[in-house]
Write a protein that binds this DNA or RNA. Structure first.
Ligand code: SF4
Ligand code: SF4
Lengths: 148, 148
DNA sequence: TCTATTTCGGATAGTTTTATCCGATTTAAA
DNA sequence: TTTAAATCGGATAAAACTATCCGAAATAGA
């Protein structure tokens, strides 16, 4: 559904959010380890998110990544997906016709439009903060436990 | 959402179905032209669908592709997607964790599960025949008109 | 000032996806 | 039997995606 880069980006952002809400800055190493993703690749994705103003970075010795409080309170899942995969997945369409129109819909339009809209709504209303809180509480997980 | 190969596969199958319900066999050339897809690539995808027993092929001079009546009456969109992209999209998952479990869900699980299930249901209940009929009636289109 | 730590950014490599080419095989019809 | 029209299948190329490596730049702290 999402690209691997986007999956890593979502996990990384949730982890940063978990720490940022307690005012802790985190390093690339910690992020990659917590989300079970390759370090160098994660670095590239973090750069995309920094440039998209989804997360903030601090260079140098005690540097790392964080999300400022104001941003964190409004940050939506859709912003991450948009920055990495673009909005094709939830705005573009089923058969990838050159252009979309209600007056010349493709065969799957009526079946697809509802799913796509539900997906868009979900991405645009789900906040990173609520995902981070669920994970902090131990209700959800960023990586699988070894015993399972 | 779907791979390009899958988009071509869906359009191709709908076109074959449109002709097959009037007992007309169609050639690769006609299929590629009707679905606005590259011919050689479409050929590869048609081979996948033949091997997956989604469509039938006849070699030689008056050969081409068709879908036999019995098959056409039960053919679902999910069979095409499964054959080309696999079922990851509607059975696999949001953050691509190593394994999925209700007892150790990932952060997006509760948000994502509903969408994924709606998508699965849609793909498994939508028939190629109904899509083909809509296109035959001129209600839906496989490619965009030039004037738009 | 020097050093260690860390992000930043360019180069590069491997893999998958998309796409093309062309010869082999099959078959209907001349 | 020959020819023409098709699918079939292997080889290959181009593009996108995933991944790694390493040096440059910045910065806190000794
Ligand atoms: S017609 Fe509808 S389903 Fe088809 S490509 Fe356009 S928006 Fe998507
Ligand atoms: S926990 Fe749910 S959303 Fe997450 S990967 Fe598993 S099935 Fe998908």
């Amino acid at each position: 559904m999402f690209s691997r880069a986007c999956e890593y980006g979502i996990k990384a952002t949730i982890f940063i959010a978990m720490q940022s809400k307690d005012a802790r800055r985190v390093s690339l190493k910690d992020i990659a380890s917590a989300s079970n993703a390759p370090e160098a690749f994660t670095a590239k994705i973090l750069q995309i998110l920094v440039k998209a103003n989804v997360i903030d970075s601090v260079r140098g010795a005690a540097g790392g990544f964080e999300i400022d409080a104001a941003k964190l309170s409004t940050l939506k899942l859709s912003q991450i997906v948009s920055a990495i995969d673009g909005d094709e997945i939830y705005k573009g369409c089923g058969l990838g016709l050159e252009a979309c129109s209600e007056t010349q819909p493709c065969p799957v339009h009526y079946k697809f439009a509802k799913i796509r809209n539900d997906l868009r709504l979900m991405l645009e209303t789900t906040t990173i903060l609520e995902l981070a809180e669920g994970t902090s509480k131990g209700e959800t997980y960023l990586k699988r436990d070894q015993m399972l």
